[in-house]
């Protein structure tokens, strides 16, 4: 266990009980009525879901940056998140959101479709440049189809529901979403963890990695599956929550020896911590309606990336 894993693991253990107490109504277990029900049915599933979603997005970001050897890479580049979002939007468009399972199912189908398209275009060659371009095109296509669905929404209510859902949130989520996302994200993180050694080898470039016996095609498949499962499942239960995969590896990297393999597990923990804390903060903000988590993280993430770009320009990053 490296230092970063320990630090973020401890912080997560400390943050979890605090987040259970935080909300529009602060829980005082000794005096608040129905504390057990509020905790078991509302706060705990929401907190667990935040940990699952953040963990998946953090690990996906670390793997993505390691694969592309670029600190500005984000899992969104693969087009899997927009694919999942498109699937969910289709479900909302047809009014299937009233069913408990159909929206996440459609989102997972969308993520699977994006993964299949990526694999069909770039899977055989294993080339990083082709893969990145294919990801961008899948993202662009899914984005265009989502915009088309919004513009042709059958009624104003559906349109507002779609737009609201696209700005990800963990509001009103239950154990059902936890059971949908937990196995998929866990499997995805495990697959990404397995890529660590290969990502380390890529530090010296693709030809050296291949000379060290790394099967770059297998690596690509593991990444498509790992990122597809983590990001696809996250979008399916929480909507689009951006910037986590981009920001988290930067918070973790200074605490490690900077090898990509050393980032994946602590990035999962740090991602879980970031989403858990951010979700707790949006709950306690004194606003008329709760700030959407996706919007909050974008408000936090965009300035962070700008600061990062300025640092990189100065050659300090």
């Amino acid at each position: 266990m490296n230092r970063a894993t320990l630090i973020f693991g401890v912080l997560l253990v400390v943050a979890l009980p605090l987040s259970l107490l935080a909300g529009r109504v602060w829980l005082d277990p000794s005096s608040t009525p129905n504390t057990a029900i509020i905790l078991a049915e509302l706060r705990l599933p929401r907190a667990v879901l935040a940990i699952i979603v953040g963990g998946g997005l953090g690990a996906a970001g670390a793997a993505m940056q390691g694969y592309l050897r670029n600190p500005l890479a984000d899992p969104g580049l693969f087009g899997i998140a927009p694919g999942a979002a498109l699937g969910a939007v289709v479900a909302l468009w047809f009014g299937y959101a009233t069913s408990e399972w159909l929206l996440p199912l459609f989102a997972l189908i969308g993520a699977g479709g994006a993964m299949a398209l990526l694999a069909a275009i770039a899977g055989r060659t294993g080339g990083i440049a082709l893969f990145t371009l294919a990801g961008l095109m899948v993202a662009s296509l899914a984005g265009a189809l989502t915009a088309l669905a919004i513009s042709m929404a059958p009624n104003a209510f559906a349109m507002s529901e779609i737009v609201l859902w696209l700005n990800g949130a963990l509001t009103d989520r239950s154990w059902r979403e936890v059971w949908i996302a937990a196995p998929l994200v866990t499997l995805g993180v495990a697959l990404l963890w397995r890529t660590g050694r290969s990502l380390d080898a890529l530090t010296l470039g693709e030809p050296v990695a291949r000379s060290l016996g790394i099967d770059t095609s297998k690596l690509l498949w593991l990444l498509i599956l790992g990122i597809g499962l983590t990001v696809g499942a996250s979008v399916a239960v929480a909507g689009i929550i951006g910037f986590v995969g981009l920001i988290v590896p930067h918070l973790v990297r200074p605490l490690t020896d900077r090898r990509p393999s050393q980032l994946i597990v602590p990035s999962a923990l740090a991602g879980a911590l970031l989403v858990l804390v951010a979700d707790s903060v949006v709950r306690v903000l004194p606003l008329v309606t709760e700030l959407r988590l996706g919007i909050a993280l974008s408000l936090l993430g965009a300035p962070f990336v700008l600061w990062l770009l300025i640092r990189m320009r100065r050659g300090l990053a």
Binding site: R69, T203, L204, G205, V208, D257, R258, R259, P260
Partner: peptide, 9 residues
């Protein structure tokens, strides 16, 4: 053209 992508030791 060797490359070292990350600031590793």
């Amino acid at each position: 053209a060797p490359e070292i992508a990350w600031d590793v030791t």
